[in-house]
Design a protein around this nucleic acid. Structure first.
Ligand code: FES
Ligand code: FES
Lengths: 152, 152
DNA sequence: TAAATTAAAGATATTTATGTCTTTAATTTA
DNA sequence: TAAATTAAAGACATAAATATCTTTAATTTA
């Protein structure tokens, strides 16, 4: 449903929002270490976010990434649209070409409800919010030491 | 989130549940025409369902697929576990190796709620239910004439 | 029994997502 | 200015999902 690209983007941005600033830029190296995501792949994703002006960057010694105050209130949903537009464009969950209210597939109702709920919370969640929650110990960006599997 | 394999499987089974019987078997040709799904790909999926005794088949003239009465109350969730087991095993939505309640990622709460809702309804939905709804005109298996896109 | 029909099985192909490596350009520092 | 550092850009590689084609086996019918 959601791509790894989006997942990595959101985790990366949250890390930068939390640890970075114009004075302390976050290098790609620190970032990929910090969230346990493949270095080069993350680099590509950051490029895209820089182009979209979600994050800022400079090259050279001491360079790296940071997030302007004005970008801190960008929502997770905006990031999703940027990184994974196909998902937002809403394909049918049951493999039909398009999701259609008038000719719903077997999972239409469930899918729409589920997706709307998820998207609504993505719309309400800003990078600032996410950074705050990480700071409060309510959520975690990396994946070291997480051995317990939620088996449902 | 859910694969096309699962989508095609569920739509195919519903078609067979609705139109097939031991007297009137559904050929792969009729089936792929009926639900607008790639012929050969659907064939592979049906093979798997036959091996798992969800659907029955015979070769030869007049042969094809049908569903025994006893299989009509199999749930969509059972089909999902069969066809797309990774999804049920619950990977983290944000690309972490495992979904972990104790170290939740930014979308954990939303994801778990969303997934539980979806899975609950899959558990309650049987092939018999689905066939009934198609018969009642409440849902549709094919994708002809569906031009209206739900843009969210 | 021969021919026709149909699913099963196996091989191959294509596409998409994910991941990696190399080269280039920008910036800083000595 | 020269060297070092770092992101950007582009090329390449791998894996997974999706799709197709060919051959084989089972079954029916003539
Ligand atoms: S028609 Fe399938 S999800 Fe809407
Ligand atoms: S930890 Fe990511 S979905 Fe549970």
């Amino acid at each position: 449903m959601l791509s790894k690209k989006f997942a990595y983007a959101l985790r990366g941005l949250t890390y930068i929002a939390l640890h970075g600033s114009i004075e302390k830029k976050i290098s790609l190296q620190e970032l990929s270490d910090g969230i346990d995501v493949p270095h080069f792949f993350l680099g590509k994703i950051m490029q895209e976010l820089v182009r979209n002006e979600i994050v800022s960057s400079v090259k050279g010694p001491g360079g790296g990434f940071w997030i302007e105050d004005s970008a801190m209130n960008r929502s997770a949903f905006e990031i999703l649209k940027m990184i994974d537009p196909k998902v937002v464009a809403s394909n049918c969950l049951m493999g039909k070409k398009n999701c259609d209210h008038d000719r719903p597939c077997p999972l239409h109702a469930e899918y729409v409800a589920c997706r709307n709920t998820l998207f609504d919370s993505l719309k309400e969640t800003t990078l600032f919010n996410l950074a705050g929650k990480v700071e409060a110990g309510e959520l975690f960006l990396d994946e070291k030491n997480n051995s317990k599997i939620c088996t449902l």
